[in-house]
Structure formats: structure tokens, C-alpha cells
């Protein structure tokens, strides 16, 4: 099971900016977030993996998940 590590982003003090690759919403990602951590987009709720952090810019990528009842 995937648990977002920063479900309440407002609690962190220093933030990096990121953009949801799906809905384009702006995300504030805590500065101490590390590569591989999971954040969730406040706009669409999607869980996103931190792929890279460079000079305060955070690259996020959708996670591929599949539920038991997913499909056609």
C-alpha cells in the first residue's frame, strides 16, 4: 500500500514548487522531500513520485497502480 508521505503540505515550512503532470495544478513540495517519495496532488488527488529535484525544481511522475477491480 502506498502512503503519501506529505499529505498535509501546509505543515512544512520550506517548499519547492512542482506541477502535477496530469492536471497542471501547482504543488508545494517540502524542501526536505527526497527522490522516490510520494506526494499527492491537491487538485486531482493523483499520487505522484518525486523523480528528480534540481535547484528547487521538482519533477513528478504518475505512479502506475492497479486495483483488484480495475479494467474493462
Amino acid at each position: 500500500m502506498i502512503t503519501p508521505v506529505h499529505s498535509n503540505l501546509q505543515e512544512a515550512k520550506v517548499m519547492n514548487k512542482a506541477k502535477c503532470p496530469d492536471c497542471d495544478a501547482e504543488l508545494d513540495v517540502p524542501a526536505d522531500t527526497e527522490k522516490g517519495e510520494i506526494v499527492s496532488c491537491p487538485g486531482c488527488g493523483l499520487e505522484l513520485e518525486v523523480k528528480a529535484i534540481k535547484c528547487g525544481c521538482v519533477d513528478l511522475q504518475e505512479l502506475t497502480i492497479e486495483g483488484e477491480d480495475w479494467g474493462e
Binding site: 496530469d22 492536471c23 487538485g43 486531482c44 488527488g45 493523483l46
Partner: peptide, 8 residues
């Protein structure tokens, strides 16, 4: 338009 039917 888009409706993300997830954490809504």
C-alpha cells in the same frame, strides 16, 4: 472538461 474521480 476533466473530473478526477478520485480524492474528491
Amino acid at each position: 472538461t476533466f473530473i478526477p474521480f478520485r480524492k474528491i
